[in-house]
Write a protein that binds this DNA or RNA. Structure first.
Lengths: 357, 357
DNA sequence: ACCATTTACTTAATCGGTTAAGTAAATAAA
DNA sequence: TTTATTTACTTAACCGATTAAGTAAATGGT
């Protein structure tokens, strides 16, 4: 049995919440008539401590539910055993799947993964990354916002902490980047629409500064070019953050006489708008308009009609990014930029591009 | 201009990443011939420091990109300015919306919100909560896993740190709980199916131990009872984690002669399976089977057919939960259990329950 | 029996901040 | 002029853990 009489004297500053106060090594030491050093070593199974003492320490620690304070150790060791994952949002299948991949690897490596959301705000990204220069985390995995168009905050953080970018990478930063074959996919999506009989193909552009966006559009233009079509600049439709404006924009495009008969959505959330606008205007998918979307949504198969998608290896990209980061955290002198990887996405043909209807 | 000559002598232990090493108050103090105390006070705009000195400190701090180490302050102040958000997953519209609500409030209060995912693993929940007893965070907002059926880990954490539950609450813990009117919604959904002409209504049950689940089912049973129907136990279909098994289960149910002609999905992810099974078996929604789902998905309107939903005030529930937690963190003696709130959900009728087709 | 080594600890410094208490010089009050 | 107060700092303790260095006692070798 553990005698707690002495310990009660130690509990101070009790708020309504910490009825018991946090147990510290100091308390264990006092209770056991040992130095804090001995207790610390016992907990870490040091050879300097006798088996009997170790047993006493472990038993008391368990009885009192001792949990080491992570910040104390981190401060001393200059190592937080924590990584940060900085992503635009989580209400997106791609990011939530990638996150699962990252988390799985982080847990397997005994690390904490702190998730930070920028909500596509460049200001928030800057504030966040500045904070991460503090030593709060040992490494960072991130996808930049749609609006990230200067890179000093990234460069600055990259000097302090190993970083790995995934999907929405920043080309200007010299470090590891996990991407998918965006240009090729833009090409494939467009070629698939052409093959399905589309004459006028539009593409929704999410952000000028985003490398994945421009690559997808490059692929789109390349496909048009190879098929002897003008790269009509009017067919690149800017898609912003204001959902009302976006809807209005789409409505306008599809109301025109020479409206597109095929459209590529570069991110999944554009799909709902496309479907709704087509419904409203009485345009049938795929008969009047064919749709391909970059998407990882699980609902694509039960949409009306089911949606042809370019699906990214989201989970795998997360796993890879995390794997490389932990490799860097273990081996001190890893050249991260040499670890960049491109993982291919896959085209899934469904009814939204069917030409046989 | 800042003279950095002295400072270079301080940089030690440079890894490939920390080319510059982290700037500390000690370095600033040395460079300015001040004590660390003076620098600390200057940075916190103390009246004890002259305006001239404050200016010198602030300028050097800015020039060297000084970022205070959060763990050092937290340790001393016994306050981390950080809360934890523990949720089952993020690939779910309800949780991601709630998360946005929580985050918005956290940022407004100058706090960090650390997101932890349990992936519905009870073991992970226990490990996580144990870690959170360390002092890592000042408060916790959480939704328990589907499998959480013992509560010692929750009770234990609740002694150390203020907790607020939302949606998937634990009734046994005496603290604030933000819920929606689950029983009423189960009732409404069922009544709506009855009103739409359904004779045999099934409900998908996600977990026996989850209070929201049992409440929804109670509402369902109540509605059946009030309409003079037997509460057929066979109509409560257990939905587990194995997606292949779930699909098989559903297929079996809908193949039977007296198959249901109405079904309530208690969580949104069940919807895809229902739609796919109906497609496969040639059952038309809503003519042969009517579907209501608890869902916050943005795609419900473009499904085939569009889905009738019970939609929870997810963002608002997150905001409320966070608001109460911060109220508790500010006022020391707030009785959290008195802050529990129930926010109503809303029924949106769409085509999956249409009776006029 | 005597020195060497091993065992099982303790002491004290450290991580990077914050702050109570102390102090010397300048200014104000009597 | 002398004492009181204010100003602008510094010193030192502290948060909770880790660990290099120190030490007393037990054990071992010859």
């Amino acid at each position: 049995m553990v005698n707690l009489t002495k310990l009660t004297k130690l509990s101070i500053n009790q708020s309504i919440f910490s009825k018991m106060g946090n147990i510290t090594i100091k308390m264990l030491a006092k209770e056991l008539n040992l130095s804090t050093a001995a207790v610390s070593k016992a907990l870490r199974d040091s050879h300097e401590i006798s088996e009997g003492t170790k047993k006493r320490v472990l038993e008391l620690a368990a009885a009192l539910n001792y949990v080491p304070h992570p910040y104390a150790g981190s401060l001393r060791e200059k190592k937080s055993n924590t990584i940060a994952v900085v992503i635009p949002e989580v209400a997106d299948s791609f990011f939530s799947l990638a996150l699962n991949g990252i988390e799985a690897v982080a847990i397997a490596n005994g690390y904490h993964a702190l998730i930070y959301l920028t909500h596509e705000s460049f200001e928030r990204e800057k504030t966040l990354l500045k904070d991460l220069e503090s030593g709060r985390v040992d490494g960072v995995i991130m996808s930049v916002t749609m609006k990230t168009d200067t890179f000093d905050h990234l460069k600055s953080l990259n000097k302090m902490v190993p970083m790995v970018f995934f999907d929405r990478v920043c080309e200007e930063i010299d470090t590891a980047k996990i991407t998918t074959n965006d240009e090729e996919c833009g090409y494939q999506a467009t070629q698939h629409l052409i093959d399905s009989g589309c004459k006028k193909i539009a593409i929704l552009s999410i952000s000028e500064s985003l490398s994945i966006n421009s690559k997808r559009i490059q692929g789109y233009q390349q496909a048009l070019l190879e098929n002897g079509r003008e790269g009509d600049p009017a067919s690149i439709i800017d898609y912003g953050e204001d959902s009302v404006e976006n809807f209005e924009q789409l409505r306008k495009v599809f109301r025109e006489v020479d409206r597109p008969d095929g459209i590529v959505a570069t991110v999944s959330k554009m799909t709902t708008d496309i479907y709704l606008v087509c419904m409203e205007l009485g345009l049938r998918i795929p008969q009047d308009v064919k749709v391909v979307s970059f998407s990882n949504d699980s609902t694509v198969a039960i949409l009306n009609p089911s949606l042809t998608t370019i699906t990214q290896p989201a989970f795998e990209m997360g796993e890879l990014a995390a794997g490389i980061l932990f490799k860097a955290l273990k081996k001190k002198y890893l050249v991260l930029s040499e670890e960049s990887t491109v993982v291919p996405s896959q085209l899934f043909v469904r009814n939204s591009t069917s030409s046989s209807v």
